[in-house]
Design a protein around this nucleic acid. Sequence first.
DNA 1: TGACCATGCAA
DNA 2: TATTGCATGGTCA
Length: 927
Amino acid sequence: MKRLVLIDGSSYLYRAFHALPPLSNDAGEPTGALFGVVNMLRATLNERPDYVAFVVDAPGKTFRDDLDPNYKANRPPMPDDLRAQVLPMCEIVEALGIPILRIDGVEADDVIGTLARRANAENIDVTISTGDKDFAQLVRAAEPDRAGIVLVNTMSGSRMDSDEAVIAKFGVRADQVIDLLSLMGDSVDNIPGVEKCGPKTAAKWLGEYGTLDGVIEHASAIKGKIGDNLRAALPRLPLNRQLATIKTDVELERGPAELALRERDADALRGLYARYGFKQALRELEGASTANDIASDRAGLRATAAGHARGGGAAEAPAPELAAKGDYEAVTTQPQLDALVASLQAVEEFAFDSETDSLDPMQANLVGLSFASETGRAVYVPLGHDYPGAPAQLDREAVLAALRPVFADPARRKLGQHGKYDLHVLRRCGVEIAGYADDTMLESFVYNATASRHDMDSLAKRYLGYDTIKYSDVAGKGAKQISFSQVAIDDATKYAAEDADVTLRLHRVLGARLAAEPALEKVYREIEMPLVPVLARVEANGVMIDGDELRKQSQELGKRMLDAQLKATELAGRTFNLDSPKQLQALLFDELKLPVLVKTPTGQPSTNEEALEAIADQHELPRVILDYRGLAKLRSTYTDKLPEMVNPHTGRVHTSYHQAGAATGRLASSDPNLQNIPIRTDDGRRIRRAFVAPPGRKLVACDYSQIELRIMAHLSQDEGLVRAFESGADVHRATAAEVFGKKSLDEVSGNERRAAKAINFGLMYGMSAFGLARQLGIGRGEAQDYIALYFSRYPGVRDFMERTRQDARDKGYVETVFGRRLYLDNIKASNQGLRAGAERAAINAPMQGTAADIIKRAMIDIDGWLAGHRERALMILQVHDELVFEVEDSFVEELLAQASRRMAGAATLRVPLVVDSGVGINWDEAH
DNA sequence: TGACCATGCAA
DNA sequence: TATTGCATGGTCA
């Protein structure tokens, strides 16, 4: 299939001018923008397009000026330094043999749009090279035998080649981009949009209503200030749509097929490059024309790229050197690759690391791989560096094919740092890893969960006394951060090879330390390491979400929020931001003079739920705020956000589990957190109905009943508590009967059971009489009596608590049933608050941590069994004491039996482990 | 833009 | 003066 590249010349010239330093040649002529454009053009031509055009704006009015006299009215005149570079640029473009298009009365955008559509219709693949995001409206995914339209921005390295890519960038499909731009407006072109409506808001509205017309139709339903802004902007929006639409039907003299690349004029180019001081381009010209010095040519390109990718670096001056601290080398030739593979096959273990362009392992693209098998030496294999002028790299597929047997060989031990990430990335490239044997993050976590963070930079500092190159050193940070694929290969090599090297060196230290602590070694070897591939699978499986259902709920919640808001405004007598605790505090406590009964940790009057409940009998407003808060929480955190988290490749939501997240050994979940999906209220519960099974499948949820209390019974060996669990009775009711002296469970009142439950839970968190009193809304003395009574009935529990505190003081740590250790740095602190906090943590950690160990063991066991049934059942969620599976209908019974049995058998305690389960077409039903 | 605070969701 | 987490919107430097 033929390919056409359309270059948005004006856009590049402006952007290069502003992105690059004000360089000049020996004669003092400005060259910065020129330099950027020339590099971009060379990179473009290196890809040998069949047709190409360099499109620039012509002077004069266009149809947009007629539509809106203010269009582009506030655009400043072109700076002189930039104007001076326009002519030389055109000369260079001409000399390169690229056709220049400049059509009177037609903007470059419309020329490009027209050519793109025509070429696409003629089944020519189109690449639009521009820095202007508006072109996303033209993107069209290629299909087999069907040309597509791709948008690339070589300055930022971004690429949009499908609706998914457009969604990732803008949150809307390509066909919604015009509507998005219409809502946002464009300050550069002086198009006023909806005030305060940025890309997020616009995308949200379009997600709800589909099109601009849909948004206009529902404008009255949008609440708040932003809704007013929208309504104010309504008359303007149709005009914005016309302005934002790139025309695709302009009359042109030349069609796509008449844009063939001409022979370049080497003599003219040589003169121009020399005049403007483009030494590397000049060298490339000479090198290619004589074709006898490939190596130096490549070196030249690399130096150019380094200067370019860093943006601020002087054009031809080398970038400031990153200090390479070991013998680090880039692998870019076949002989080097052969040597690497041979060396990996010759060793028993090696460290590896992957570099990518995203933190999300379910979306990241592989940019390079690094390896180290002896300390102080490492190599980096760049695979996807695609900045302008990037040197030739080995073919990605060929490299992966060569490495696949090494990764798949379980006898060759692989080491990593947070290897679960790399497992995902490589799996998505078709490389499965067997023999993932050690992970320095987990070694550190098991060795001492609280001594340091477990990222590589912290570990290197702590255990090696070594300062690593930081990611921000090579890629920048904040808004200016570039993708790793844009990092110069020399810099990338130092950074990436160091990662592998440091991983190996850390393992030498941490592996030895763990080996000296057999109990910890066991936790690491038998629980944490085997769990890595299990978690990777759970994450990759993901969960199916009914996005339409959630969007429907969002709309409904929005309506109810609006009602609450109106009522609140009425009650307050003025408008205020219901989301602002500060404004609310001023209103309630200063203006309405309601009493301050609760304060925040910083001493401010609190407006939290407890505080509002306490004053709800004195004024109607607190109740309305509480209602509003409940709705707003559900909408902002769940119903609005979850649909946005659907992975465009898989159509499912993939959380990340942090294995070294919680010091107690629990997992933590993020992006999104699927461990805090509401369940306690009816409105909240509805959200769980949007976690669904596909047709022909069911969700199965299995959860441990009272696991932490059972662990407390086991650890304390308290006869009464053990008996309660052995009898199979409702443990809170049994506790109430004991504490309140009832002869039979039937005599326990609801209130007594509630009190007993509060005591049971409170004890596990190290709660005091004060806390219990507050929880139950009773006097402190009464609470103290309950606790005393409890301890007299369950003396084993009291002894266990005291023993645990003493243990913590003596040893400085507490441990779980399986030997996981938690150090408590503050247990001997002189600060009484810190010490009390450490004591509470000491009491809680063995129970929470043992529960975490148990469910981890169950997950490993169940995953092993599921290996033979991957088509029929998937483990998809873990929520501390619960596992959720997605199961084929015909396999539900089998899975229920196996999962329950394996969970219950994951530990043998003094009391039985009981597993409850449920089945349904959604998570609510299954629970 | 980043950091912090207040708030609230889960086990 | 109740454990462990994560995400939100507001606010401020």
